[in-house]
């Protein structure tokens, strides 16, 4: 088991070193997320004001759009010099490699969210500081569920020619339960009279989905990655 964490940690560290040098994924993903928010504002703002209760939806749409972009790019990097093969050649547990890529992606998306969430709050009047603990739990659990499936799909699409278009097509329908939980839970916290028990219920369902998605992904990674 220690081997599992050692390998996963090495993959995370490698991905982080590359990203700290180039900053490409964080910057492009962040800019893309902000653009999504901007487009939304054109669609819904009337007479200079956004309607209430839209912040949660906009936030999660931006996260999922930007997340797909980040997933595609992290695996494009592994494809560039065929390094994904080198990873699979290592005498390590294949699921450990998956776990490493997933954690790396989570850190990247976390960084993006640190800027994106306050920005959405500012532009659409969302009270993010009312229940910081619950909001952070929702963000982490939601991003985890989304990225867990996304990492698996992006990894298996590396070999496929039309991977850039196929990734969102495959990923969005599968991760709908996570998105629903994320949006509903966040909306419960952002609404005029916050509903804490409801948010707690959505967090519980979300965590259940996380457990299912992560287990299933760890389980499928090995057979799906052998050509």
């Amino acid at each position: 088991m220690s081997g599992f964490f050692r390998v996963a940690w090495q993959v995370v560290r490698k991905d982080m070193t590359v990203e700290v040098r180039s900053k490409e994924i964080v910057l492009t993903t962040l800019l893309f997320a902000v653009s999504v928010v901007l487009i939304f504002s054109f669609a819904i703002v009337r007479e200079g004001r956004a309607p209430d209760d839209v912040a949660a939806g906009i936030l999660w749409v931006a996260i999922s759009f930007a997340g797909t972009l980040a997933m595609g790019r992290t695996f494009e990097r592994e494809r560039y010099n065929d390094t994904l093969r080198a990873l699979l050649l290592a005498p390590a547990d294949r699921p450990a490699i998956y776990a490493g890529k997933l954690l790396g992606l989570l850190l990247l998306l976390g960084l993006v969210e640190i800027i994106l969430v306050p920005l959405v709050a500012l532009l659409f009047n969302a009270p993010i500081l009312a229940f910081p603990g619950k909001l952070i739990t929702l963000l982490i659990a939601g991003t985890l569920g989304f990225a867990a499936v996304g990492t698996l799909f992006a990894a298996m699409l590396v070999r496929v020619r039309s991977r850039d278009t196929l990734l969102p097509v495959l990923l969005y329908p599968i991760t709908v339960p996570v998105m629903i939980c994320g949006v509903r839970g966040t909306a419960a916290l952002f609404q005029a009279t916050p509903d804490e028990p409801l948010a707690r219920l959505w967090i519980a369902i979300l965590i259940a989905w996380d457990v299912i998605f992560v287990t299933l992904s760890l389980w499928t990674f090995e057979p799906v990655m052998t050509e």
């Binding site: 390998v7 090495q10 490698k14 070193t17 590359v18 180039s22 065929d82 390094t83 080198a86």
Partner: peptide, 18 residues
């Protein structure tokens, strides 16, 4: 099978760990 964004030593160290 090398990461161009990493140095030679980092590439080798990463794979040695792996």
């Amino acid at each position: 099978f090398l990461y161009p964004e990493l140095t030679a030593r980092e590439n080798l160290t990463f794979f040695a760990h792996l």
